[in-house]
Design a protein around this nucleic acid. Structure first.
Lengths: 336, 336
DNA sequence: CCTTCCGGTCGAACCGGTTCGATCCGCGCG
DNA sequence: CGCGCGGATCGAACCGGTTCGACCGGAAGG
């Protein structure tokens, strides 16, 4: 079941079998046919470990996901699925490693055991120890999201600050004078999660520029939190007529709270933000929002990673995506 | 950066370094310290491929997920996260492979390239070609879900038929005389997806036993499908007062349809089924339902897999879980 | 006092591939 | 006719670990 056995049965040397398989040197047609016949007859596949050892590369890449304890959000799931699919299209395997949950042995194994040719990292913090660790390891990697001072590194991200600014401008254009941002969970915000911080910055900046009153609240990722959060907003900030959010998990609760408060969207209340298309369309009414194109980001990240692996020393590249804010039915003129 | 370098700097042979690392033979304390010092100084980690080649095992397991094209459902996500987490706890890495989406090269690489020590397969069909392929490969594997005639094989599953029967009995006890099962998507049902088929069987069986009229409908996994599906039920089957479902994706649409129809749950309408706890509690009102304990199933599957890898030839085991139907607030006596 | 045993170490073989250099052979060209 | 070239193939080295058998010296036992 190894290459020697194939060679013996085909009456050639091991190296000839190897060359027949890889095509890196010419092999006589008759010989190649004999070898191929034996291979298909025995169902032989080269041992991946042996090949990796000899070639010095594993044809595998690492995908570091948030600690498995926390339930993955829809967007995170989109990244995982996207990376796995894109990798499969390139005949690469994906090794998934949870990190941050205390047991970082998995992460360490991946970066220092030459198990993978490169790494894709997601859910990046403004100051992320995993990024520093990878930098010093010399392993090629791409981040989905970016640290505060990315310097010369490889990453793809969505321009949350700009998108949220647009959302605020959109609401201001419609006459809204007091708006609120529903951010991600308090823990995530406190840990310095990039999108949360950049959204807040963009939100406050645009609000100041347009002279609208602005509030920022956090909302846990639990079911029902969106409900409580909105009730709280209605009582504490009764003047708010527009809402911007990047918190997808809050949507179902939000929907219920709107019903409960008997607010009609967009007549009584406007909602917008950065929300994956399929969720935005699942809302009632469909949300005017910017998409998080997880699949495209994953593909892009993989592309950058392959380029980096292909020619080490290439100058780092990045992509800051700015999806359109799709007008649907959840924003309207402020009711006087 | 390899074991020879370490050996040289510590002034010992390569084998001694290996033994110091693995502890498989005694090493003098002084020598061990010298070796360890060199290792930590250089930040050395053994090359995973070389180790795998020599040991004949990879300390990696494969997780075969549905084709990445289709969006993963919440339950599937739970399995993935659960397996990854459980594997990390055992210091195992997880190689994720999408299968069924045409490009099955990934699946084939995993089963025949000695890349993994075992495989966990999910989303099993009643007659699943991947199961046959794995059987003939001789690679240890465990399925989450089970084929129609599992024979002697390793699997874990939830007893959908029994749980759905219970749900029907529960509704019948409350006086409901006409009930409907909202199944998974038509394509999934047509492909012979296990839970879909077994739920239908259990549903019809219990309904006949209790003499209640029973209908089965399918519902696509798209957003909004749950809405259309329920509207359809209201017009085509006006006598229905109780609903059983295993379709988690349909819930948001269902929720909206109930509002729209101005039906109050459980006064006007009862809902139950097999739904992951967190989604059941996110519904309004919280659903009386049986949990799909994805995390526990994943842990169990891993445990079985490790047992199988540990002693090949062991007699196959399986686990058919029967989570309780948790009484919440979505079922009540039929209104006359 | 000699054997036995065992802790500690080393060298070599092995896992299953890839790749380099060398050999052999037939053909075209000067 | 001799030489060079290039296609086809082989043998050996190498990738970086693990493991087996052997060796050495000192302590325990007869």
């Amino acid at each position: 079941m190894n290459i020697g056995e194939i060679a013996k049965r085909a009456g050639v040397s091991r190296s000839t079998v190897s060359y027949a398989l890889s095509g890196k040197r010419p092999v006589a047609e008759a010989t190649a046919k004999r070898i191929n016949d034996v291979i298909t007859e025995l169902g032989y596949r080269p041992n991946a470990s042996a090949r990796a050892l000899a070639e010095g590369r594993t044809r595998t890449l690492g995908l570091v996901i948030p600690p498995a304890g926390a339930r993955l959000t829809g967007a995170q799931l989109g990244f995982v699925a996207g990376v796995v699919e894109a990798a499969a299209a390139h005949d690469l395997d994906v090794l998934v490693s949870p990190s941050g949950g205390g047991h970082d042995r998995s992460f360490e194994r991946i970066v220092s055991g030459r198990r993978v040719d490169g790494v894709i990292l997601m859910e990046i913090l403004l100051d992320d120890p995993r990024v520093s660790r990878l930098e010093e390891s010399g392993l090629p990697f791409v981040t989905i999201g970016h640290v505060e001072h990315p310097g010369a590194s490889w990453w793809v991200d969505v321009d949350y600050a700009a998108l949220i600014r647009r959302c605020v401008h959109h609401l201001a254009d419609l006459g809204h004078e007091e708006v609120v941002l529903i951010n991600r969970s308090p823990e995530l915000v406190a840990s310095g999660y990039g999108p949360a911080a950049r959204s807040t910055a963009g939100f406050l900046e645009a609000a100041e520029q347009r002279g609208v009153r602005a509030h920022v609240v956090t909302c846990p990722d639990e079911p029902g939190a969106g409900f409580a959060c909105f009730e709280d907003i209605r009582t504490r900030l009764p003047g708010v007529t527009g809402l911007v959010t990047i918190n997808e998990a809050a949507l179902p609760g939000l929907q219920r709270a709107l019903h409960r408060a008997e607010l009609e969207v967009p007549r009584d209340f406007s909602i917008t933000g950065v929300i994956a298309d399929h969720l935005a369309e699942d809302f009632h009414p469909p949300l005017t929002a910017a998409d998080v194109p997880a699949g495209e980001m994953a593909r892009l990240a993989l592309e950058l990673l392959l380029e980096q692996i292909g020619n080490p020393g290439a100058t780092p590249r990045h992509a800051l995506l700015m999806p359109a804010v799709t007008l649907r039915s959840s924003t309207g003129a402020r009711r006087r």
